Simulated assay, not measured.
Amino acid sequence: MIFGYMRISTQKEKQTTDRQRITLEQYATDNKFKFDELIEERISGTIKSESRPQFNILVNKLRKNDILIVTDIDRLGRNADDVIMEFKKLKAQDIRVIALDTPYLNEWEKVQDSSIYNMIADIFITLKAHMAQQEREKTIQRINQGLAVAKAKGKALGRPKVELPSNFVKEYKKFKDGTYGNMSAMSFAKMLGIGRSTLYKYIKILECKEA
């Protein structure tokens, strides 16, 4: 059987899968076949494939030697790693994926030959994984460059330092001296309008300064 999967990454009514549908149907016409089913999904592109309801319904319908066609390979997942994982899972089940935006994976005749398809699929997985790794390395490089620039400009990195409120030292001395009677730490924190964990953090900062 031949299935088509269409996804748009928004819930907005104005956006439709029309472009994808037309592209898929034109591909079917050009290659003289008909889809057994076209499945449409409206869901954010940030959602993993395994968490997409319609995609999961589709996967459960797929059987050995079935063909799944998408207009763009990235419709299979939320990022490169997700796409690779889904592609590998489908290949392991002897399901062939045709992606119209991907060279060689979009050639109908080549996909019909299992030995040629498997060779193309293995090359695609290798290239996609390499591209994903390169993208991760670029991201890390950009972050490191940003940190280096910030450091060069004298910007403090990490969490900002916690500063004691101007009245804390005076109020804490009163608390310690018994000016407020037998007030508990919790009541003292409430009086200052802070949480107990914040109170202890302030006390620790004060003790470090006085050490």
Rank of each mutant, 00 (worst) to 15 (best):
Q93Y: 14
R136T: 15
D66K: 06
D113C: 08
E37G: 06
E50W: 00
I73E: 01
E163L: 11
V70M: 01
Y172V: 07
S44D: 08
E171Q: 14
E207S: 09
T10G: 03
K153R: 15
F175G: 00
K209Q: 12
V83M: 03
I98L: 06
G146L: 01
V111P: 00
R19K: 00
N56K: 13
G77N: 08
Q93F: 15
K88N: 15
T198N: 01
A99I: 08
L62N: 11
A152L: 13
M191V: 02
D94V: 06
P53N: 10
L192H: 07
D74N: 12
D30F: 12
L100C: 05
C208L: 12
K91A: 14
S51F: 12
N167C: 00
F175P: 01
T198A: 02
R196Q: 12
A211E: 15
S115V: 14
F33L: 04
N79H: 08
S187Q: 13
Q15L: 00
V162A: 04
G181Q: 04
K173E: 14
D122T: 13
L58P: 07
L192W: 08
R52Y: 06
Y104H: 04
L38C: 04
V83P: 01
I143C: 02
R42P: 04
N65T: 12
H130T: 15
A185C: 09
G154Y: 07
Q54G: 02
P103M: 09
I123T: 13
M85W: 13
K34R: 02
K48Y: 11
R142P: 05
K128P: 03
V149Q: 12
K176D: 13
L58R: 07
L206C: 02
D72I: 00
M183P: 01
R142N: 04
F188N: 03
G77H: 09
I205K: 04
M1W: 08
I47N: 02
K155R: 12
G158T: 12
G195W: 00
I120K: 03
A92C: 01
V149F: 11
N65L: 07
K170N: 09
T71Y: 04
V97L: 03
A129Q: 15
L62A: 09
K204N: 09
K161D: 10
K209W: 00
E171R: 12
I84P: 03
D30H: 13
K32C: 09
S49M: 10
Y117V: 05
P53W: 06
T46P: 00
Y104V: 00
D94K: 15
E109V: 15
F87S: 02
K89E: 14
Y202W: 07
I203V: 14
A189P: 05
S44R: 07
I8Q: 02
N144L: 15
L192G: 02
S115N: 14
I194Q: 03
E163Y: 09
V111L: 06
A28T: 08
K170R: 13
F124C: 06
D66S: 06
S44L: 05
Q145W: 10
I125T: 11
M183V: 10
E171Y: 12
K88Y: 15
L58W: 07
